[in-house]
Nucleic acid binder design. Structure first.
Length: 257
DNA sequence: CACCATGTTTAAAT
DNA sequence: GATTTAAACATGGT
């Protein structure tokens, strides 16, 4: 479910609903110890790449949604949580419920810095240093498609954004990182930032300026499509690394650059 | 009901 | 040392 925009939007919505409030915190599944924060004031949520941090005065919960994780708002209606709910944050007006996450652990300062050191710059962070991403890409022979998905290079891009970014720049997915020019990298960084930011506002991924309708297919150029939005040619789907990537051989020729 | 998918981590193999 | 592969984990939508 989640690419970086989802997590940043989650942080914004959680803050809008719950920041500064005293929460009832529970773990219906019993998988997250909540005694120390139940009844405590929730300070704020913070997103970095695809990671989410929930800050309480004396504790911080690290959440990563992984492939199936969800974190949803529910109206308070007295209904008991479903048995798949791992964590429940109950504020004055809404309850937020977490399910299916890959990670939901209490972390200390040390854990947090170790984690942040592990991931690359997040284009949505004003303090991000794109230079770090450029250096990794520039030094690597790995295909661009693999580098974009590697959270150590850049944090927040997932399978949909990667396919769309490469298509918009006319880059072949297998172009080795060290063959990308610095000028094109700068375009790539700016584009990524723009698309992720738009995703946060619209709560969905849209890379097409004026889609003809509201369907997901129409909002994208190649991902999940059988024909390229630009040239109408057949979209190629190949497994690169562990994940499928969609691209248009005509709009994204091998020579690239 | 069967199938599919917007992810990460670790260790082992190349 | 760099990179790739395999395995494990976790749900909901169609």
């Amino acid at each position: 479910m989640p690419e970086g925009h989802t997590i940043h939007r989650l942080a914004r919505d959680l803050n809008g609903d719950l920041a500064g409030d005293v929460l009832r915190v529970s773990s219906p599944q019993g998988r997250v110890p909540t005694e120390t924060v139940d009844g405590a004031r929730f300070e704020r949520a913070e997103a970095v790449g695809k990671h989410l941090f929930l800050h309480f005065p004396d504790a911080c919960l690290h959440v990563h949604l992984g492939l199936f994780g969800r974190f949803r708002r529910r109206k308070l209606n007295g209904a008991p949580p479903r048995d798949t709910i791992r964590l429940r944050l109950e504020g004055p007006r809404y309850a937020w419920e977490l399910s299916g996450a890959t990670a939901s652990d209490w972390v200390d300062e040390h854990d947090i810095s170790a984690l942040l050191e592990r991931i690359g710059p997040d284009p949505l962070s004003p303090r991000a240093k794109p230079k770090l991403a450029w250096e990794m890409i520039h030094r690597s022979k790995r295909p661009l498609a693999a580098l974009l998905l590697d959270q150590r290079v850049m944090a927040g891009v997932g399978n949909v954004y990667r396919a769309e970014i490469l298509h918009l720049l006319g880059l072949h997915p297998e172009l080795p990182g060290n063959e990308l020019s610095q000028a094109t990298f700068q375009k790539l960084w700016r584009l990524t930032k723009k698309l992720l930011a738009r995703g946060v506002e619209e709560k969905t991924i849209r890379t097409v300026d004026k889609p003809s309708d509201r369907t997901k297919r129409e909002a994208l150029h190649v991902y999940g499509r059988s024909s390229c939005r630009n040239c109408k040619g057949r979209v190629v789907r190949v497994t690169l690394g562990q994940r499928d990537i969609h691209y248009c051989p005509r709009c994204q020729p091998r020579e690239g650059e």
